[in-house]
Amino acid sequence: MILEAREVKKRYYRDGLPFYAVDGASLSIGAGEFVCIVGRSGSGKSTFLNILAGLLTPTSGSVGFEGQEYAQLSDGELSRLRNTRLGYIMQGHNVLSNFTVLQNVILPHVFFKRDDDPADRALSLLEQVGLRPLASQYPSSLSGGELHRVSIARALFMSPKLLIADEPTGDLDEETVAEIIELFAAIVKNGTSVLMVTHNSDAANYADRIYTMKSGKLHPRLQDS
């Protein structure tokens, strides 16, 4: 088991009244699995993913990655986990505008002391997502689909065990969505587990399991056909 979340709850207060953005969600993802979560906006998906990525602490419940409990990890250890074993693509525009495409991909490399030279590996990843010619461009000259592909290349850069992606197909035209989804399918085939939140029903066709999130609760959806 790579990721395991048990009875995760996250409570917020709105106008002084408590409500649960995530309300007792449990999920486990094994090696090489492709899991999708669908649900309307505001259903708590992003909060849930932030908790799974260790960026948010749940109010109750627990999350473990390859047997390590998040609650027992320091900020440094958790950051290191995110840096090397867990690729997280956040919702929306994920690419830092002050850095070139290539620098963006290399970014995870600089947060911990390392000796190897990352440029070659980053370029070969950009080649795979079809952005090699744009390596020295700044994000402002890239299209939405290209930006998504940059963040995918960056998330893959440290060869993570699990890739969590929050709506990687949002705001894109159909053709681009298809390209991105194929890219994810290829990633899964390559042995990396993927957890993806999406509105897109096509993505579901590639998934091993699909969940629906509604008012903070996670329900397994039976795959029709």
Partner: peptide
């Protein structure tokens, strides 16, 4: 100018997109 190595290692671990 930003030095982008001209030679890309051809060992591509991931299957190319169709």
């Amino acid at each position: 100018p930003m030095q982008v190595p001209m030679q890309v290692p051809m060992q591509i671990p991931m299957k190319a997109r169709q």
